[in-house]
């Protein structure tokens, strides 16, 4: 899936100031994208407003179970998951719950998200 197909869509969430907001989750392997969804102990949460990062945090998954992590992502209102390998059952689960999944990614997590946001902003202009 290309990032341009992900960001800037008309169904994006908007906040009270009518700005597009987005919550992106990246399971971590150190500072990199975790290669195996469900095996990472930390997730990078990045929130954007109108294509700019306004909040980021590392949170402990507190679980080693991909089903439990999926539940938490869905319940915490994540819009997009950026990950390495993900079992297709969990990918379908997330997709059906309204979370866009960008899988088979690798490399430094934050840099990857920033690149994706910039790419999405350019597309919207």
């Amino acid at each position: 899936m290309r990032m341009s197909a992900v960001l800037g869509k008309p169904d994006m969430k908007r906040d009270s100031r009518n700005e597009i907001t987005m919550k992106i989750a990246v399971p971590l392997f150190g500072d990199r994208v975790s290669p195996h969804f469900g095996a990472s102990s930390q997730i990078l949460m990045i929130e954007t407003r109108d294509g700019k990062i306004f909040h980021k945090a590392r949170i402990d998954t507190g679980a080693q179970d991909p089903g439990e992590i999926t539940r938490r992502l869905v319940s915490s209102g994540v819009d997009q998951l950026v990950c390495g390998g993900i079992h297709r059952v969990y990918r379908q689960w997330l997709t059906r719950s309204g979370v866009r999944v960008l899988d088979n990614q690798k490399g430094p997590a934050e840099a990857l998200v920033i690149k994706m946001i910039e790419s999405g902003s350019k597309k919207r202009r």
Partner: peptide, 14 residues
């Protein structure tokens, strides 16, 4: 490529 990015095993991290 790094082996963990390709092999993607659940034991890679810990």
């Amino acid at each position: 490529q790094y082996c963990f990015d390709v092999f993607r095993a659940d034991i890679c991290e810990k």
